[in-house]
Every structure is written in structure tokens, then in C-alpha cells.
Simulated scan of single mutants.
Amino acid sequence: MNNSSSTLPQHSWRVPKHFKLILLCSIVLLVVCAAASLMLGSRGVGFSEMMDGLFRPEIDSYEANIVRKRISRTVFSLCCGAALGVSGALMQSVTRNPIADPSILGVNTGAALFVVSGMAFLNIGSAEPSIWLALAGAGGTAIFVYGIGSMGRGGATPIKLVLAGAATSAALSSLVAAIMLPRAYVMDQFRFWQVGSVGAGSWSAVATIGPFLIAGLLIAIVTAPALNALALGDEAAAGLGVRTGVLRIMAAFAGVILCGATTALSGPIGFVGLLATHVMRLILGPDLRYVIPMSAISGALILTISDVCGRVIGSPGELEVGVVTAFIGAPILILLAIRSKVRSL
């Protein structure tokens, strides 16, 4: 993949207007959301108690210990949201589909099928083997959906990819149910994971997902300039020196490892990638050098806010974050489909 930055139209390389202000506001919102995640839940704590829990380890009060237990969940939520946001941006760019998302294209369901198969047939319940199963399932499903969506006249159009993803997701969901129903122990283990939740977030989970998040984000940032060229069309990108086949494989690989690792640990949480990327495109424009890293921030914001809302609404229990994101994301998906008429990017 050659360096095409010097040959791309100059207007696509301008810094978005007020970018520094937008970045600063996003970081402030991220800090506020993280604080809300530490303070709110089935048992609320005050600001001073949160500060005690964070910065005064000698204090051993009940409220300070609650805050300390919530730190790992908050960090895990931020990591998962960032991974899903970047994954959504990559999938939309690779497929040139404005409503592409790991959940819409069936990638989450493919990861779920492999995870539940590992639970049922291989007695796998720990995080590390589940991640590799989820990556295999997510990658295989992505290849299958893209292959089906590319058949026929016009190639991989947005509407064909969405239909292929929906059909594949429905078929794989049926297989997941067929594996679970005769096995009560698998159903008990799988049912909470299937909804999508960050409630099991721990420092070991953060350490497990961290390398995948870093690797996927680095690949996404490195490929962003060439993905800008890909938005002009394959022929135009090739004319600018971009090896489109290699680029698609690299970007799709990054999207799959981000989505697969997150799905393995938190379940198939939908719509975060769709919402995060569209918000950033609306604010910043189409330049992926800015959209991709900012999608990580907006994805972290969306997932953390949804987790806090689920805990507040479901108090004294909690409403799983996957339910909250689906409730918010489904109407927005319908609105986007109506407004864009499923145009290509």
C-alpha cells in the first residue's frame, strides 16, 4: 500500500473546524461519564466518597469500597465502547455502507455461535479461549456475509450487505438456540452473556481485551489515510497508489479483532459502532484520520452512558447495557436508513 497522502485532494486533509474544542469537550464528557459510572448504581455514593475511594486508600468505608469495585467495570466499559466504535468505523469504510455495524452484519452473532459451541462441546468457560473462538466466528461470518453480498450484479452494495447480514444473523441465532436448548447448563451460563453486559468487567478482563484494542486501533489509524482514498471508489483509490485488496483485508482484520474480543468478554452488544461513527461523521466530516480516533471516544461515551442508565433504571438490580443500546440504536438505524436511502459512502 503506497503512500497516497500527497495525491489526495487537499480539501480532504484539512483539520475539521473547531477540532481541538470538540476533542476537549469529548474528553471532559468522558471524565464526567466515568465519574457517573463510579457514583451511580444500586447504591449511590457522593462526590467526596468517590474521591476517597479513588485517592485515599487508607479509608476503608463501605462507600469507598463500592467505588473501588466499580473502577474495573468502568475501565472495562470504556475499553469495550472504544473497540466497538472503531470497529464500526472500519466496517463502514471497508464496505462503503453507512449503516454497517458488527451487529447488523451478523459478525456479533457469528462470534456468539462459536463461543456457545465452545461452552457446549469443549467445556470452555474462561475468557482467553473464548476470545479466540469469538475471533474465529467473527472473521468467518464477516467473510461469508461479504461473499454473499458481493454476488450478482453491482457487487457488494449496501442493501445487499445488510440483507446478507440480517439473513446470516437469523440463521446463526437459530443454531445458537438449537445448541443451547437441550443443555440447561449452557443456557444458564450463556443467557446473561447473550444480552450483552459489562457487569462482569474486572481487571483481568481489561488486561485480556487491552492488547486487542491497542492492535486494532493502531491498524485503524495507520490505514485511515488510505481508507480516505477508498471512499472515492476502488478505481480512483488504485489510481492514487492504494492497494485496495490489501487495505480491505487489513482494515477488516482490525474490525474483526476489535469486535470479536469485545463480544467474547461482554456479549453481543449492538449499535454502538453505528451510533459512535455517525455522530463523529456528523460533527467532523468524512476524514477518517479524525473519525476513527474520535469514534473510539464516542463509543466509550455511548457504552458507559448506557451502562449507567441501565443501572439507574433497573435499580436495585440493573438493566443490561445491550438492552439499552438496542432500545436507543434501533430507532436511529431506521431513521438513518430512511434518510440515507442506504446510499454508499
Results as ranks from 00 to 15, higher is better:
M1D: 00
N2K: 13
T7D: 11
W13M: 12
W13G: 11
V15N: 04
P16Y: 02
K17L: 14
H18T: 03
F19H: 08
K20R: 12
L21S: 11
L21R: 14
L24T: 10
S26K: 10
M39V: 02
E49Q: 15
L54C: 02
L54A: 09
E58N: 11
E63W: 11
I71P: 02
C80R: 02
G88F: 03
A89K: 01
M91H: 09
Q92E: 06
S93K: 01
S93D: 01
T95G: 00
T95V: 05
R96E: 04
N97T: 01
N97W: 01
N97E: 04
G106A: 07
L113T: 03
F114C: 11
V116M: 07
M119V: 08
N123S: 11
S126D: 12
E128F: 14
L133M: 08
V145N: 10
Y146Q: 12
G147L: 14
I148R: 03
S150G: 15
R153T: 13
I159R: 14
K160H: 08
L161W: 00
V162A: 13
L172I: 12
S173N: 10
A184R: 15
S202N: 08
A207N: 13
L217P: 00
A220M: 08
V222Y: 15
A237T: 01
A238K: 14
G241R: 07
R243I: 13
F253L: 14
A261C: 13
T263A: 04
S266V: 12
G267C: 12
P268Q: 05
P268T: 00
F271P: 05
F271A: 01
G273H: 03
G273D: 02
G273C: 04
M280W: 00
P286V: 05
P286E: 09
D287C: 02
L288I: 13
S298E: 06
V308S: 14
G310N: 06
S315G: 02
P316G: 04
L319N: 02
G322S: 03
G322Q: 05
I328R: 09
L333V: 08
L335V: 14
L335Y: 14
V342Y: 06
